[in-house]
Design a protein around this nucleic acid. Structure first.
Lengths: 221, 221, 221, 221
DNA sequence: TATGAATGAGATTTCATTCAT
DNA sequence: TATGAATGAAATCTCATTCAT
C-alpha cells in the first residue's frame, strides 16, 4: 500500500540523459549495485531498484551482467580489487619488524573502518559460503600479502622478537578478526552494549589496543 | 472409538501429524526456521520450505509468529537466550585473574565453533542493522557478563597483572572478534587462503593463540 | 506486519467467563456479527474477529449458524424484524390523511437516522442482489405497512386532498428514498459537498423538507 | 522479419495479446475492474478474475495501479469523471426555473437508471466510509453543479416561484435521493414488494412523480 | 456445548527476466 | 545499445472451516 501507481510517469522529470558511453554505463550500474547489495543482500536487493537509481534501464543490466548473480559477483570482484590495490601500496619492507606489524594493523584497521560496504559484502558472501567468490576470477594477490607478512615475521623471529610457532596466515587472521569485527558487528554490539564502536574516541583507543594485542600475541616468551 | 486405520500410528516413521501440542509445534517450527534462516538469510529463506519440513502447515507459522519477520525475530531471541544461558554457567569468580580470562576466552571460542548457525544469524542481523534485535525483548543479561568481566579485570589490575586503561566492553569486543571471525568468515578465508579454519589441528593452535593475544594485550607494561 | 504473534496468549486476561447459556451465546454472537458485517460487508467481515470479540469460540459460530453466510442471513432477519416491529407500533388510523402521512415520514426519517447499521446492511444486501433476503424467512409484514398506507391514501383521495394516480408502493418508495439516502450516502456526500447530513441543524430542516416533498407530490392538482 | 506464425493476427477473435500499448492496456484493465468491483465489492472482487478477463497478466495490474485498492480507486475516479462530464453537458441557464429543475431531475433520473454500476460503486464506497473517494484526486466539479443549481433556485425565488429557505445542496440531495434509491435498492425492494422498479412502465410514472415531488417541495407556499 | 489448535485452498503481491520496438 | 511494457512463476499471507479433546 506504499507505492501508488508509479510507472506511467511519462518523461522522467529532470534526469541528465546520458550519451551512449558503455563503460560509464557499466560503472554507473556497478556503483549503484554495490550500494543496493551491501544494504540488502543478494536476495534482498531488487533489480528494479538498481535500474531505477541508474540512469539506464533494466535491460542494460542484463545486457552487461547477464543476471542478478552476475552483477553481484562483479561487485564482489570490484571490492576485492580495491583492497588488493591498497595492500599493494603499503610499505613494510623498510621497517623494523614490530613497526612493520603495527603499520600493517593500522592500515587494516583504517581500511575496514573506511569501507563498511566492503565489510558488509564480505559478511554476506560468507553467508553464501563464498560460492560467488570462489567462482570469480579473483587473482591470488592475497598470497602476495601473505608472503610479505611472512617476510616480516621471519625477520622478527630471526631477531628474537617474535615467537616462531605462528605462521603468517594465523597472524593475518588475528589482525583481520580484530579490525573486521568492530565494523561488521557494530549494530548488534550497539544494541547489546549501547556503545558505538566507530565513534572517534573509541576508535583511537581500539587502534592502539588491537596493535598491542597482535604484538603481545607475537612476543617471544 | 479406536481409529485403527490411518498411517503407522506408533512408530514415528512417516510423519506423526496432528498432535495438538502447541508448545511442541512452536518448537518444531522454530528449530526448522533456525536452520532455514541461518542458511538462506531473511529474504532468502522460504516460508514454504519451513512449512514443508515441519509437521505443520504454512498457516501455523503465521498463527504462531504472525509474519516472516516474526519467526526470524523469534529465532534470534532463542539464539541469544542460548548463549546467555551458557554464559551464566561459566565459573570465573573462583579463579586467578589470568586463569579466569583464559577460561572466558576458551568458553567463547568453543561456543562459537560449536554454534556456526548462531554466528551466521548474528552476521545476518548486522546486515539488517540489528533492527530485529533492537525490537526484540532481549533481556540485559549481556551486561551481567560485562559486570562479571569487570570484576575479573579489577582484580587483575589490583594485583598489578593487568593494565588499567581498558574497560570490560573493550576486552569483550576483542575476545569476541577473535573467536567470531574465524567461524563467521571461514568461507571467504578458505577461498582466499586455502585454509580450513575449523579443522581440528588449526583449532587447537588458534585457541592458544587467541588467549595469548588477549593476555598479551592486557599485560601490564 | 501489523499483528505480532497474538494467539498464544495463554489464559485470556480478565474476561467474564460465561456459564452455559445457549440463547445468550446466540444473541451475543449475533450482536457482534451485526457490527462486524455492517462495518465490513459480507466478504470483508472476518469470522476470526467475530469469534474474538465474542466470549465464545469460532466453533460455536458454526454450531449455531452453520456458515458465514448463515450468520449474515440471521443478522439480516434480525434487522428486518426490528423495523417491522417499529412499524407495527405506529398509529396512523386515527389521524387526518395529511397528518398521518407526515407522521409516517417522520417515523421513517427517525428510524433510519437512528439505525445506520440497518441502513448499511440494506445497502450491502442490494449489492448482493438481495439473494440472502430472498432466501430468508422474512414474513410479509411489509405488505401490512403497505396496506395501512393504502388506507391513508384512499382516505385522502376520497377527501379530495390527494391525487389518485399514485399507489402506496410508489409513495412508500419516495418516502424511503428521501429518508434512506441521507443516511446511506452520507460519506460520499460529505466528501463531495463538505456537509454532514446527520448534524442536528441539518436534520431538523431535512425532516420538514422531506415531509413537504411527499405532501407536495401527493397534492391534488 | 515477418512472423506469420502465431494465432489469428488480424481478426480479434481469440485474444490479440502483446500490444505494447500502455494506454489501451490501462483502459482494458480499468473497464474489467469496473465490472468486477461493481459486482463483487472491494473485498469480494478477485484480482485473478480481473487478470483473467483482461488480455494482460496479474502483474500488469500491479504495474499500473500498485494494489487492489489502487485499481478500485482508479475505477471510482473514472466513474465520477463520467458523471461530471454528463453534468457539464446539461443546459439549464436558458430555461425557466421550473423547467430547468424538471430538466435536471430528469437528467439525474436517466443517468442513474442507465448506470447501475455507478450506483453500485457509490453505495459500496459509502460502506467504506468514502475513504477511497476522499483520498482520490476528484476535482471539485460538484461544486460547479451546485453553483449552477444555486443560479436556478435564485431565479425561481426572485420570480416568486420557489420558497427561499432551501439551499442548493438540500435540493440536490433530495433529487439524488429519489433518483438513486430506486436503482440502488431495487433488489431488496423487489424482494419485499414484488415490484421491479426499473420496468419501463414504472419508470415513466416515477420520472414524473419525482419531478412533481421536487417541484412540490420547492413551491412557494 | 465448548475450546483452541490445525487444515488447505486460495488470495494478494513480488520479482527476475524477456520481448517489441 | 537502449527503452519500457510485458511475462510467469513463485513468494507471502489470509481465512472459512474442521478436528481432537
Amino acid at each position: 500500500m506504499s507505492k501508488t501507481a508509479s510507472p506511467p510517469s511519462g518523461a522522467r522529470a529532470g534526469r541528465p540523459k546520458r550519451k551512449n558511453d558503455p563503460e560509464a554505463t557499466r560503472r554507473d550500474i556497478l556503483e549503484i549495485a554495490r550500494q543496493e547489495f551491501s544494504q540488502n543482500g543478494l536476495s534482498g536487493a531488487r533489480i528494479d531498484v538498481i535500474a531505477e537509481r541508474t540512469r539506464t534501464s533494466k535491460h542494460m543490466i542484463y545486457y552487461y551482467f547477464g543476471s542478478k548473480e552476475g552483477i553481484y559477483q562483479a561487485v564482489l570482484e570490484m571490492e576485492y580489487a580495491g583492497i588488493r590495490e591498497r595492500e599493494g601500496e603499503l610499505e613494510l619492507e623498510g621497517l623494523a619488524p614490530r613497526e612493520a606489524l603495527r603499520r600493517l594493523v593500522e592500515a587494516t584497521f583504517d581500511y575496514d573502518q573506511a569501507h563498511p560496504e566492503f565489510v558488509s559484502l564480505v559478511s554476506m558472501e560468507n553467508l553464501h559460503h563464498a560460492e560467488y567468490l570462489e567462482s570469480a576470477p579473483i587473482r591470488d594477490i592475497n598470497s602476495v600479502m601473505i608472503r610479505r607478512l611472512e617476510g616480516v615475521l621471519a625477520r622478527g623471529v630471526r631477531q628474537g622478537l617474535f615467537r616462531s610457532d605462528l605462521d603468517a596466515v594465523d597472524v593475518h587472521m588475528a589482525i583481520s578478526s580484530l579490525c573486521f569485527f568492530r565494523v561488521a558487528n557494530r549494530y548488534t554490539f550497539k544494541a547489546l552494549f549501547k556503545r558505538d564502536l566507530l565513534s572517534p574516541r573509541v576508535r583511537a583507543r581500539h587502534k592502539r589496543m588491537i596493535a598491542d594485542a597482535i604484538l603481545g600475541m607475537l612476543a617471544a616468551s
